[in-house]
Write a protein that binds this DNA or RNA. Sequence first.
DNA 1: CTTAGCACTCAGAGGTAAAGAGTGCTAAGA
DNA 2: TCTTAGCACTCTTTACCTCTGAGTGCTAAG
Lengths: 356, 356
Amino acid sequence: MELSERKKKVLRSIVDLYIRGAEPVGSKAVAELPDMNYSSATIRNEMAELTAMGYLEQPHTSAGRVPSAAGYRLYVDELMSDYRLSLDETRSISTAIEEKMQRMDKLVEKVAKMVSQATDLPAISMASRQGVVTVKRFDLILAGQGSFILVLLLSTDEVVNKLIKLPLEVSEADLKLLGAALNAAATGIPAGEFTQSLFDRVMGAAGSAASLAPVVLEFTLETLRRPGNTGIMVTGQHRLLDQPEYRDVDKAQRVLTSLDEETLANLPDVIRNENGTQVLVGPENVARELKDTSVVVTKFDIGDGMQGMIGVVGPTRMDYAKVTARLSYFAESLSKLFAKPEQKQLPESGEDPKEA
Amino acid sequence: MELSERKKKVLRSIVDLYIRGAEPVGSKAVAELPDMNYSSATIRNEMAELTAMGYLEQPHTSAGRVPSAAGYRLYVDELMSDYRLSLDETRSISTAIEEKMQRMDKLVEKVAKMVSQATDLPAISMASRQGVVTVKRFDLILAGQGSFILVLLLSTDEVVNKLIKLPLEVSEADLKLLGAALNAAATGIPAGEFTQSLFDRVMGAAGSAASLAPVVLEFTLETLRRPGNTGIMVTGQHRLLDQPEYRDVDKAQRVLTSLDEETLANLPDVIRNENGTQVLVGPENVARELKDTSVVVTKFDIGDGMQGMIGVVGPTRMDYAKVTARLSYFAESLSKLFAKPEQKQLPESGEDPKEA
DNA sequence: CTTAGCACTCAGAGGTAAAGAGTGCTAAGA
DNA sequence: TCTTAGCACTCTTTACCTCTGAGTGCTAAG
């Protein structure tokens, strides 16, 4: 059954008011809104019906109404007015993002921090690699007695390296031989196709350097297999305590705990299919602990088959319009940033360093 | 003035009781302890004196006593009984640490998680490089049209790399030339001595590849300068809310906020000089917000001029004996783990990969 | 269909009294 | 001289009460 225009207006007003005030909304408050041309009694009737229909709830008889999960759902899907970012907001977001940054995952993490700050809520973030990765090129560099550096250039243009120390002498010639063998047999091969026969082939071709091959191949396999996900990061947990609904320590505790743990690990599954910004309202959520908690997440591409996800966790009452707006803007900025890094200065490049 | 044995005993009992109960301790409770052979009145007298001496405090007239900062200090320094880790505890700690791990900082972070779990308190961690770093060796690898990989082997045996993309064609010969120039002029040089004349020298020696030199040198300088610190990580914040003293949301909020922020940035300074496990009691602490909060930290060497730090943050009342024991054990295990990695399997080596 | 009015409900604030914990001091006992 | 029992006193905590105010649902009039 479709809601009347007036009901929608009332519902929207209630959610809006509740978002600001975090307190049950009474008929009078709604009636006093500037563009609400009905008396509180009329509003009361509408509210009674909305309650019967399940869009509103009443904590106790003499309290105002609070939106139910269904109410929020409707609000998010249909009623929510677009929140326009002010010029100031966009500006500060943009300049913050443009800061030169290095590692992709660090960047996403850093952005999450900014999101958390911008929304005054805890933020979650994740960077993940999508699709299959292969090695584009192997390089082996002699690095002294019994040690050499293995450098892998991946199909994603990531560069990965490892210093390998062995209890046996390694010669330049051996490395060359092994390098050639690897580049011939193991480039362009996804982790799934690293079979025994591949190992054999490389070892055969590597001649005197055959004994080095297993170490190298194993590391390579490990690298290719490495789940592309950087794991979910959570930042700004403390901001949750700013929210009136978490003045109750036990509640806050429960939510914070499930944020910290691996509870969020299955979040990606929930989100995977959809694209863009999406809102998970309370009960729809993964963990039981997150009952009156909502999650707003957004996904974005960052090129080279990598994907990022940033999101915000907060009370179901949170200001969806604002949060969604901010989040989308961040995501978009990030996508753009990664889409055309070549337009930047010389020293800019896709990849990066930093080690153990 | 030295305390009488009995006073010490009373003080220790009070701290112990307070650690368990988180509530002011009365004379009766102390008198009822099994090995306390005095009546509550006697204890009361002792307590009055200890209060006068500043080791105890009284929240209000009719409440029991609470240890003052000085009281804790004394407790930690002299009175605390050794907490012996049970076999179970050591075993679970050891096996957890022994898990094969990759990046040093990730490892330290992971250990922090375990510490947090083991102590039921938030944990902080940091990995830092000590002393001056130089480049041991430069390598340049051609990686396609207009791009090459720069690989730096550092004095710490870390390997750092960067994929550099340039809008100009690069030849194998150029790279060789540049590599030679770099290895001749810029190895063994700390960041502080990267002068203009060094730049000039490399560029002069690089001939046709001179144009590539600035990018490479800048990145190198950046790498060497990069503060060795991985930044302080905080895990398990939510556990703070388990502690009765943080049932007050505002308080918890304040502490959590200052944990999250850069407040901890100057913690290293406080700790730098000392070695081993140390306890910072309340007021001694860095941030004002951490007033009735204590920090127990421990530092340990992990070879190659790297140092680690793990610690625990909790109410001043925390169980110092237990926490200190756990922490020391973790630190020791980590030190050992890093001290002799060669005893492990072949593929084990000092360094590692992963990029972004 | 809208609105004014009214009786009713119920959470929360404020105030008071009783209970309970712990103290300091005094005086008696070892 | 040191220890301990006893007691008056202080002060927090808790329970309980009342009162207030917000908000409701219903009814009847416009």
